[in-house]
Design a protein around this nucleic acid. Structure first.
Length: 437
DNA sequence: GTTAGTCTGTCAGGGGCCGG
DNA sequence: CCGGCCCCTGACAGACTAAC
């Protein structure tokens, strides 16, 4: 009998073990393409129990759709009935909010809030992770409730769990402090010199690459999601009545910042690229390419949904040293702030001065002095003995902005006037830093 | 294999509150 | 006023899953 057997006809050799399980399963329960969806769905849980993960389910789904010699292919409905979409099974926060809003029952709000709260899943012990996550999900629950139209007052009354919130806040504060204690280093690939060189060599007549995108993000300390919306403008007040956001002596601003949804207030521009015109050119170059579909937005898909996986993967791949931390899109913003503040600070900047510059580069509000510290990345170069400077009363601060004339060795350029704007900015910052002390 | 969409855990930081 | 502290939301990264 060892004859013929022309088995290697096609790629049916791939008899995955899950496919075998499926065929046995179908046989045992006498299921086929003739079965109704109702019949099939009765057996869904049992079959699902045999399939350990989504890969297995994928194999099975494909097999169902494909059919065999003995068995014809299942329709889409039948397939869905037998191996239902797992994503519909999750009782997500969003789904809760939707249902609860519909029921209009305050107790439903309350119960679900508690259910989303910390439960001590294992041994009744609530760890930090669970606590913080619980608080986050409760917050999310409130947000979705409001989104679906639940009553504001009910939300505030029945969807707030102050114990959990407080505990979560405490944990997060501790984490922040720990993080600040040991900041990461600047990745080799994004040191100032490397980024600066790449930026200078950019040819805007070409199509931008992901690397160009990354460098521009660094250059402008952007949030990844800001790439398509940020704009650099030049503003000069033409009257004695400038808008409230106008800062005397500054003419370059950014608009389209992500976090200001209500009042889009322009924020001062501070970039490691000292020529604002060039910065703007590079930014619009990137944006035009995205609009034209030649370059992906780092965060959004064409349908407006979030998907930063391709860009994040690219950024991650740029890690050169084993001992470096992972590079993420968000890290580029912090790196950019550091580069910008270093570039614009004078030869002997005080930490306060750098913080001030950082805040401007990051386009924060200037309320919180300590905010910029979050971004103080460790840098071997600037790390030095903490000379306990008498930083208080030292009035005679030499003009820190001495930076302007040198470093300007850019080829050509009649654009000096623009950089003068930057320089006057620096002067003001330096003064502010002094006054604050 | 690659891409897209959704969910959760985590971080950043705007804003409110309160004592001085 | 104002600076510090706390709350809580919005944005991010990664895990998952299905679709292509």
């Amino acid at each position: 009998m060892s004859t013929a057997e022309p088995t290697q006809k096609t790629r049916k050799a791939k008899t995955n073990k899950f496919v075998l399980i499926l065929e046995q399963f179908l046989e045992r329960y006498n299921l086929s393409a003739e079965s109704s969806p109702e019949q099939l769905s009765e057996h869904a849980p049992e079959l699902n129990a045999l399939l350990p993960d989504w890969k297995a389910r994928k194999c099975v789904k494909e097999a169902l759709a494909r059919g065999t010699e003995k068995r014809s292919a299942f329709s889409k409905e039948q397939k869905e009935a037998l191996v239902p979409d797992q994503r519909n099974m999750i009782y997500s926060v969003r789904k809760r909010a939707q249902e609860v809003t519909k029921s209009e029952d305050k107790w439903d709000i309350f119960i679900n809030t508690l259910d989303l709260g910390p439960k001590g899943s294992k041994d009744g012990v609530i760890d930090d992770k669970e606590m913080v996550a619980s608080s986050s999900n409760q917050s999310r629950f409130r947000k979705y409730l409001a989104e679906y139209g639940a009553d504001r007052e009910l939300i505030d009354r029945y969807a707030k769990d102050s114990k959990t919130t407080t505990a979560s806040n405490k944990i997060q504060q501790e984490r922040t402090e720990k993080r600040l204690a040991n900041p990461g280093r600047t990745p080799e690939h994004f040191t100032f010199e490397k980024v600066h060189r790449r930026l200078q060599n950019i040819d805007t007549s070409k199509i931008p690459s992901m690397q160009d995108l990354a460098d521009v993000i660094v250059m402008l300390s952007m949030r990844p999601a800001e790439v398509s919306s940020l704009q650099i403008i030049n503003y000069k007040p033409d009257s004695e009545d400038p808008p409230a956001w106008y800062k005397a002596g500054y003419s370059w601003y950014c608009t389209g910042c992500r976090k200001q949804r209500d009042k889009p207030m322009p924020m001062r521009l501070l970039s490691m690229e000292k020529d604002p015109e060039r910065a703007r050119e590079l930014l619009t170059w990137i944006q035009d390419a995205i609009k034209a579909g030649k370059l992906r937005d780092p965060v959004y898909t064409e349908t407006g949904k979030r998907n930063n996986v391709p860009f994040a993967k690219f950024i991650k791949s740029l890690k050169t040293n084993q001992d470096e931390d992972e590079i993420t899109p968000e890290l580029l913003r912090k790196i950019g702030a550091k580069h910008a503040s270093m570039v614009h600070a004078g030869p002997n900047p005080t930490p306060q001065h750098l913080d001030n510059l950082s805040e401007i580069a990051l386009r924060h509000k200037i309320n919180r002095l300590d905010a910029g510290k979050n971004y103080a990345l460790g840098d071997p170069k600037s790390k030095k003995e903490p000379k306990s400077e008498p930083e208080t009363g030292d009035g005679p601060n030499p003009q820190t902005q001495a930076s302007s004339p040198a470093s300007q060795s850019r080829n050509n350029d009649p654009k000096k006037s623009q950089t003068m704007d930057m320089d006057s900015m620096l002067a003001e910052i330096a003064m502010l830093a002094e006054i604050r002390k």
